[in-house]
Design a binder for these strands. Structure first.
Lengths: 144, 144
DNA sequence: TGGTTTGTTACCAATCTGGTTACATTGAAG
DNA sequence: CTTCAATGTAACCAGATTGGTAACAAACCA
């Protein structure tokens, strides 16, 4: 699930920068540097979560379904992370000693994850866009 | 690097519980549920970091090199995590747009990781042992 | 000298990950 | 109503990562 969050943030960021007109998975794939299918896999999740809308057929593509100022990075995370957490947990089937220890460690991980999620919740897509977009423009102007 | 931290914590925890006498990698492997080689790989790191001492030959094994109250979970983490971080970063060779975004995300990850490391730093091995050991004993008594 | 244990390398199977191919489905436009 | 453009989805693949195994050298003790 690693890059899914990055892809998801790229999508909502790009759609924000594009104002209202639909963007195709091909465009998103090219700008991110991946394949359209990967984009669409994430796009489907974002769509089911109500963050974006997609339209098939000619002139179709994806658009933001919400105001970018009304959508936090955690919303994107929740849409994209289907159950899996950022920090890999320890598998559960160990017995005795190892199990107790795994429980202890996982508890520490939970705290850390909560902290991260809280941080993601404190940033809106609009704010992210405001930080990222100028840098992207500068990078493009330099020909990167 | 996932399970290395768990293994490392198991090692120092077990050594703490054992008071001072040396414990072999075979014993540590059996109690954790892995192979001696895996244990020794981690043991080597802990040893190089000065957290444990190992002795070869008959009657050898590993012992704590420090007071358990003087050793934090972060010390174990630092010894065990050779450069790799808990949260997988995004690879760096992407160009333009994706690179800027990756930088942004990695920055958020850094904050989260700092939070986790701070938490690990706030717990000593002795404290962990105090929490974990009774649970382990109970689990063993139940025959788990 | 022989047995015990760590240190280290090389290799293997399983899993994860991201990518690709292929195709069905939907929609717009002529 | 046909054609083209786009999403939705499943099946499969190659590379990386992971934890484990086998093998053996090195150290240490009796």
């Amino acid at each position: 699930m690693n890059s899914d969050l990055a892809v998801g943030l790229h999508i909502v960021g790009f759609l924000t920068a594009r104002g209202g007109d639909p963007v195709t998975s091909v465009t998103l794939a090219e700008t991110y540097g991946t394949s359209p299918v990967v984009i669409r896999r994430v796009l489907t999740r974002l769509s089911k979560a109500g963050l974006v809308e997609t339209r098939r057929g000619a002139g179709g593509g994806a658009t933001l379904a919400r105001d970018a100022a009304d959508c936090t990075l955690r919303d994107v995370y929740d849409a994209v992370a289907h159950g899996q957490s950022l920090l890999r947990r320890h598998p559960g089937e160990e017995s005795g000693v190892a199990r107790v220890l795994a429980g202890y460690i996982n508890q520490l991980y939970d705290e850390a994850e909560e902290a991260l999620l809280g941080r993601l919740e404190s940033v809106t897509v609009a704010e992210m866009d405001a930080v990222v977009r100028p840098k992207v423009c500068r990078a493009i102007r330099r020909g990167g």
